[in-house]
Simulated assay, not measured.
Amino acid sequence: METNLFENRDAILHPGRPIADAPPKTAPYAERAEWSERYVRWFLGQVETNGVLPKDVLPTHLYQVEFQYCVLDPQLYEQQTQQELAAEIAETFH
């Protein structure tokens, strides 16, 4: 039996990132919400949040905003956030 070394490349390159493909925007809300919750938590762990929050902003505000955007179209959100992360990485090594 031959092993495909690249089968789980995302799990190796991005530990903790959901391996399942993002559901389409036409998928049931529960499916999109479940995937979005995992992915947004992972994504926010990858990016820096700068500064102290104003007193009237809850610590979960950024998560709530990102989740609401992601759950509308998880595939588009994943594509955009992966481009954002790639740009950050390129900037770091440039």
Rank of each mutant, 00 (worst) to 15 (best):
C70R: 00
F43V: 03
L76D: 04
V65S: 14
T60W: 13
G51T: 01
L44M: 02
V52G: 05
R41S: 05
E37F: 15
P18I: 02
I12D: 15
H61D: 14
A27C: 07
T49D: 10
I19P: 14
A86K: 03
E84R: 00
N50P: 11
L85G: 12
Q79W: 07
Y77I: 00
D56H: 09
E31C: 05
Q79S: 08
T26S: 15
L58V: 09
A22P: 11
N4I: 12
L44V: 01
R38A: 14
N4E: 15
F6K: 01
D10T: 06
P59F: 02
P24M: 04
H61K: 03
Q80D: 11
Q83P: 11
V57A: 03
D10M: 10
R17F: 15
Q75W: 10
L58K: 01
A22I: 08
A33T: 06
E66A: 01
T60A: 07
D73K: 00
P18W: 03
L72G: 11
G16R: 00
P28L: 04
Y39H: 02
V47F: 07
Q75P: 14
A86S: 13
Q68I: 07
P23N: 06
G45C: 05
L76E: 06
D10K: 02
L76Y: 05
T49V: 10
A86D: 12
D56E: 09
A30R: 01
Q79C: 11
Y29R: 00
D56G: 07
H61E: 13
P28G: 07
E78Q: 08
L5A: 13
R38V: 08
G16W: 05
T3Q: 15
D56F: 07
H14W: 14
V40K: 00
T3H: 15
A33M: 06
C70Y: 01
P59Q: 00
W35M: 03
V40W: 02
Y29K: 00
Q82E: 14
Q75G: 06
A20F: 15
T49W: 11
A11C: 15
K55M: 06
E48W: 12
R41F: 10
A30F: 08
H61S: 08
V52H: 02
N50K: 03
F43M: 01
F43A: 03
F6G: 09
Q75M: 07
A87T: 06
L62I: 04
I12S: 15
E84F: 08
L13F: 15
D10H: 11
G16Y: 05
T60E: 15
D21Y: 14
Q80R: 00
D56C: 08
K55W: 08
Q68K: 03
N8E: 07
E31L: 04
P24W: 10
S36I: 03
D56N: 04
D56M: 05
V40C: 05
Q75N: 04
F67M: 01
S36Q: 02
Y29N: 04
E88D: 14
V40S: 02
L58S: 14
P24S: 11
E78L: 07
D56P: 05
Q75D: 10
I19M: 12
P28F: 07
R41W: 05
G45H: 01
D56I: 01
R17V: 12
H14R: 02
H61V: 13
A33G: 09
